[in-house]
Every structure is written in structure tokens, then in C-alpha cells.
């Protein structure tokens, strides 16, 4: 089995142009599990670890560009001030060893409904940057993730970065599972308050086929918040939770029940909003 180990992005996209069926290996925290379970038998691997340009976090006036190979460990250690909600989400991922291997680009590429970084990226209106020999393009996360473990990435495209717009305002990410650490999400919320635009935005994970927004809940909450004092009354906060729960479309599986997931995502939404307002 050939393993391509390019050191530049140009070489990497050339590999994919030659063999669009090659398996892309980022941190390996999803791919190796699939290989171990024999759910995936790679014939050709494109390993990205040597491409330094994919490991950069850069800031511009428009926001932050997070390279696809940036790990959860890097985010939680080095970028918690810049990306507070993503740092909170990163700390919920696996063990420290997993966080040193797993990448933001990999989380997007796998596009699991329970992907830990995805609710926050969705709430931030982040955009995924894709590259191929044909050029580059950017897709909003909402358009990029098309279904459970399905994305709009073309076979010859590589996820190279995710762009997060600059935003003022508090954020909170909360993830729930049946164990206090190292657990797959049963429900997850990322709430961000865009104080400049006076918007409330939420990303909800593990309660639908893809990470979900709750537009009606967001609009009603934005309306109810006293933006100058950054306060809302308890009724509005409870209503936000209920509206988020209503917007979820969870399923029953071996990890939880749809009923519990819907309830939990509502509780998490209310609490996350409360925390943002108190921050």
C-alpha cells in the first residue's frame, strides 16, 4: 500500500488529483479506529503530517484562519483566548494523547454528527477552505456538512483550513456524555453572542444528522436580550432552551434516547446562554 507523504500543499493536491480515492490521513484518530474495526481498508494513503503550512493559526482583521492540521491540543493550549468556545470544545475531546493527534480539519472531514468542534464552527458561521489542482473554494460549514459523515468535499479536494470570522462577545461550549471525560457526545451546544451584530447563535451537536442551528430560537433570544446590560430574564432563557430542543431532530441509538437528547440539548442551550450572559 503506497503512502504519500508530501511536504507541500501543492504536492498533496497533486496526489489527490492523480488518485481521488486515496484516503487522507490527518491525525488518524478517526481513520485508525475505522481501520482497526476493519470498516476501512485503505489502498493508498495521503498523509498530511509533514505539511507545515497546514499547522498554522493566523489572524487577520477579518478573523482567524485555522489550518486543517491544527490539533485540539494546540487550540486548548495556545489559542484559548483567541478561540474560547473552540478551546472549551477541544478540551472535551478524548484524552490528552488524542487531543495531541486529532485535528480540526479531521473533525470536519469525518463530519460525524457528534463531531466536537463542529457545533462551535457552525455557530461562528465559519467557512471551510478546500483546495485542489483546480483551485480553491470556500464553503460555509452548514453547506459543507451535508449529512452524517458526508461532506461537499470533492474527491480530489483537500480541506486546508477553516476561517472563523472575527467576533466580539462571550461564548460557551458544553458537551454531554455518560462519562465525565473521554466520551462520545450525546448532546452538545455551542452558544456565541455576537454583541456587535446583537445576534445569538447556537450550534447543536449529536442531536441531528448534522450539527444544527436553531434560527427561531436564536432570533427570539436576540430579541429578548437587553444588549446594553447583556441580560435576559429567566423566562426568555428557558424559552430559548425549549426552542432549541424543538429544533433538534435526535434519534434513539445505543448511546442514548431521542427523548433524552432533546431534553438535554434544551437544558444545555439554556445554561450556555446563561453563562454567556453572566460572563
Amino acid at each position: 500500500m503506497p503512502i504519500a507523504r508530501p511536504t507541500s500543499l501543492d504536492d498533496a493536491v497533486a496526489v489527490l488529483a492523480d488518485d481521488p480515492a486515496a484516503d487522507v490521513l490527518a491525525g488518524g484518530t478517526d481513520a485508525m479506529v475505522e481501520i482497526s474495526f476493519d470498516h476501512r481498508r485503505p489502498r493508498h494513503v495521503l498523509a498530511l503530517r509533514r505539511i507545515d503550512e497546514l499547522r498554522q493559526v493566523t489572524t487577520t482583521s477579518l478573523g482567524v484562519r485555522i489550518g486543517a492540521m491544527v490539533t485540539y491540543g494546540q487550540i486548548e493550549r495556545d489559542h484559548a483566548t483567541l478561540l474560547p468556545g473552540l478551546a472549551m470544545a477541544s478540551r472535551t475531546v478524548g484524552s490528552p494523547q488524542i487531543r495531541n493527534a486529532g485535528t480540526i480539519g479531521g473533525n470536519l472531514g469525518t463530519a460525524s454528527p457528534a463531531g466536537d468542534a463542529l457545533p462551535w464552527l457552525l455557530a461562528m458561521d465559519a467557512e471551510v477552505e478546500l483546495a485542489s489542482v483546480r483551485g480553491t473554494r470556500r464553503l460555509p460549514v452548514a453547506a459543507f456538512v451535508t449529512g452524517p459523515k458526508r461532506t461537499a468535499r470533492a474527491d480530489d479536494e483537500l480541506i486546508v483550513a477553516v476561517h472563523v470570522p472575527a467576533m466580539e462577545g462571550p461564548q460557551h461550549t458544553a458537551k454531554l456524555g455518560p462519562r465525565n471525560a473521554m466520551v462520545i457526545s450525546v448532546a452538545c451546544t455551542a452558544v456565541v453572542l455576537d454583541t456587535a451584530a446583537r445576534q445569538v447563535r447556537i450550534g447543536m451537536g449529536a442531536v441531528g444528522p448534522t450539527p444544527l442551528r436553531a434560527p427561531d430560537a436564536e432570533a427570539a433570544a436576540a430579541e429578548a436580550i437587553d444588549w446594553d446590560a447583556l441580560r435576559a430574564d429567566g423566562t426568555a432563557i428557558a424559552a430559548f432552551g425549549q426552542a432549541c430542543a424543538a429544533a433538534a431532530s435526535p434519534i434513539d441509538d445505543h448511546r442514548s434516547t431521542a427523548e433524552y437528547r432533546r431534553h438535554a440539548v434544551g437544558v444545555l442551550a439554556s445554561r450556555s446562554l446563561t453563562r454567556c450572559l453572566a460572563a
Partner: peptide
């Protein structure tokens, strides 16, 4: 707190 690394609870919960 319960929920651990997931930061799901505040002390008052």
C-alpha cells in the same frame, strides 16, 4: 462537577 470535562453544569445546578 457532574459532566466533568464537558462543562455542562454550574454549581447551582
Amino acid at each position: 462537577l457532574p459532566g466533568g470535562a464537558g462543562l455542562t453544569a454550574r454549581r447551582e445546578d
